[in-house]
């Protein structure tokens, strides 16, 4: 029997309010995304402003992974560069952010001026990446003030050049990313810590747990969902890093990360190819998509709350 409708349904207004976003999203994000998959199956290149395209099946994938004769797997090299630079920025970032978050949110030590600190550490992420890159390049270039100072006080050798050193350039790109984003991460973690029931800390106090124990056995486990969020968004952003490496130490055309192609990120590679070989650029985009997806899924499955899942399962079983 058909259910009789009672009252007015407001549900449709909800859909109307979110519709603009989804229309824009379908047109400007999902459609290009589907197209990217389509283009990756084409041999589609530009020469002298003319476009040539024909169906190529999986040939582009064979090419970018170096499986076709005469092709080199540049995409793996650039993925390596990107992941290295991301990891080098993320590990110190999460550690420093955790420490700052624990301090800034600790009710017992009552630090003064935490509001100001939160604002200050967040500031770097507001500056345009372009300006930050150029600023750091000026400071650390061959004859830059910091390079010269470090040389004079003997921390680095007098001929050392950050821009000619793989670890120097990668390290500095990671440093920029760290400096730009640790404030943001700290704020996210603080909001996570604030969400933890203060009663738990009181109980821990009564049980005689020290600061470290409280942090280790209370804060960290309960912070897991936020940590997962930070890790996943950072991994996604990190794999797509573009502006900092593309402006920090590139060749004049901004397409090859010096030195020796070791600071070229995957997205820089996509931009380089896009001007000449759309099919290959699309293929690399699809590869990047797949890698990001896999990494995110791994993070979700290893860091997801297993306890909660187990409880939910038991709940369902009982309901049956």
């Amino acid at each position: 029997m058909k259910k009789k409708k009672k009252g007015v349904s407001y549900g449709k207004y909800g859909y109307m309010f979110i519709a603009p976003f989804f229309i824009a999203y379908l047109l400007f994000q999902l459609w290009p995304l589907i197209n990217t998959f389509y283009y990756s199956t084409l041999e589609y290149y530009k020469r002298n402003g003319r476009e040539f395209s024909s169906f190529a099946g999986i040939q582009n994938f064979l090419n970018v992974f170096g499986l076709a004769p005469g092709e080199k797997a540049y995409v793996l090299q650039y993925l390596g560069n990107t992941v290295t630079m991301w990891v080098m920025n993320f590990i110190p970032q999460i550690l420093v952010s955790l420490l700052l978050a624990a301090w800034l949110s600790n009710q017992k030590i009552k630090l003064k001026g935490t509001g100001a600190v939160k604002v200050i550490i967040y500031l770097p992420s507001i500056i345009t990446a372009a300006s930050v890159s150029v600023l750091f390049h000026a400071l650390f270039s061959q004859y830059g003030p910091i390079t010269k100072t470090l040389q004079n006080i003997g921390i680095i050798s007098p001929t050392y050049d950050f821009m000619a050193s793989t670890m120097g350039t990668r390290g500095l790109i990671s440093l920029i990313l760290f400096w730009m984003w640790y404030g943001n991460t700290t704020l996210l973690l603080i909001s996570g810590i604030m969400g933890i029931d203060p009663g738990l800390y009181e109980a821990a106090d009564i049980d005689g747990a020290g600061g470290w124990q409280q942090f280790r056995y209370l804060t960290l486990p309960l912070l897991k969902p936020i940590m997962l969020y930070v890790l996943v968004t950072s991994a996604i952003g990190g794999l797509q890093m573009y502006d900092i490496p593309a402006l920090f130490n590139p060749t004049s055309t901004g397409l090859v990360g010096q030195p020796n192609d070791t600071s070229t990120s995957v997205t820089m590679y996509i931009m380089r190819l896009y001007n000449s070989d759309v099919g290959k650029a699309a293929t690399v985009s699809v590869v990047l998509f797949a890698v990001t997806l896999v990494i995110s899924l791994i993070l979700f499955s290893t860091m997801g709350d297993k306890e909660e899942k187990r409880l939910a399962k038991a709940e369902r079983r009982r309901a049956k």
């Binding site: 400007f28 994000q29 290009p32 197209n35 985009s285």
Partner: peptide, 29 residues
């Protein structure tokens, strides 16, 4: 309804991972 909501969420999440060839934001550089 649940299906629609799920599809919306999935679609939005996908966009996070993607770097479509024509959406590359080069303007800043």
């Amino acid at each position: 309804k649940k299906f629609v909501a799920l599809m919306m969420a999935a679609a939005t999440a996908t966009s996070l991972f993607a770097f479509p060839v024509f959406a590359a934001d080069e303007a800043e550089t």
